[in-house]
Amino acid sequence: MNEKVVEILLVEDNPTDVELTLRAFKKNNITNSVHVSKDGQDALDFIFAHGKYADRAINFTPKVILLDLQLPKVSGMEVLRRIKSDERTKLVPVVVLSSSKEEQDLIESYKLGVNSYITKPIDFENFSKAVSTVGYYWTLFNQPPL
């Protein structure tokens, strides 16, 4: 593949949220390459280099995966479980970006090994701040195990 290595995988089915997230990145000068998966199956295919991503090199894992919980086909919780239970991907940082503040979602996510859980603020200013902070932190400051 000729594209550059994907650094952020955004798993989000809602196009407005995708647009707002990308806008927040751009506004905060996060220029890392982003791949957007619109459902859980696409995300899993991308991560494990299956289906239409079969020729992608699996060892080029994203620096961070931003994951919504309510997704078509395969739920966000299931995607998280598969990532964290696979030796090849379990070290990839996963940040849940969800609208849900429900305690059960929080507990379940942390049990599955999520690295961070962020509730999407309704206010764009806060949303933009949250998303960019996550972007900076995981792509720039965080030192991943090599």
């Binding site: 809602n14 407005t16 949220d17 707002l20 806008r23 919980l69 309510q70 969800s98 609208s99 849900s100 503040k101 429900e102 999407k120 603020p121 309704i122 206010d123 764009f124 949303f127």
Partner: peptide, 13 residues
């Protein structure tokens, strides 16, 4: 909690 928030975020955003 989930579905009502998303359109609001869009309106605001």
């Amino acid at each position: 909690s989930h579905d009502l928030r998303t359109p609001l975020r869009a309106i605001n955003g």
